[in-house]
């Protein structure tokens, strides 16, 4: 079990779940959660490569960066979603499209 492929497999599953969430969910918060999953799939990959691929400490550092970035992204995105809710009284992303004719 302790080899690169199994970690990559878990990461791929996490990524696919996240992508699926992002594409299918109408709820803004759920889309955000999908994005978090994708980011964490990337984290898993970083750490796996750090352990097996020779990235060493660089992998850990990147993972930490990604976590911080994810936190910031979540904060901004949630703020946007709150704003959207205030303006449109919904957080359904299909209903807030202003670009479409």
């Amino acid at each position: 079990m302790d080899n690169l492929n199994s970690y990559l497999f878990v990461s791929a599953v996490l990524f696919s779940l996240g992508l699926f969430g992002v594409i299918t969910r109408r709820n803004g918060v759920a889309v955000l959660m999908g994005v978090e999953l994708i980011l964490n799939a990337a984290n898993v990959n970083f750490l796996a490569f750090a352990r097996f691929g020779g990235m060493n400490m660089a992998g850990h550092v990147y993972a930490l960066f990604v976590i911080v970035l994810a936190a910031a992204e979540a904060a901004v995105a949630l703020a946007i979603i709150i704003n959207i809710f205030n303006n449109f009284k919904t957080i359904n992303v299909d209903d807030v499209s202003e670009l479409r004719q």
Binding site: L19, I23, T24, V93, S97, L99
Partner: peptide
């Protein structure tokens, strides 16, 4: 051009 982000991602996928 649906304007839905998710559609675009689907296309990309």
């Amino acid at each position: 051009q649906t304007g839905r982000l998710q559609n675009y991602m689907l296309f990309a996928l």
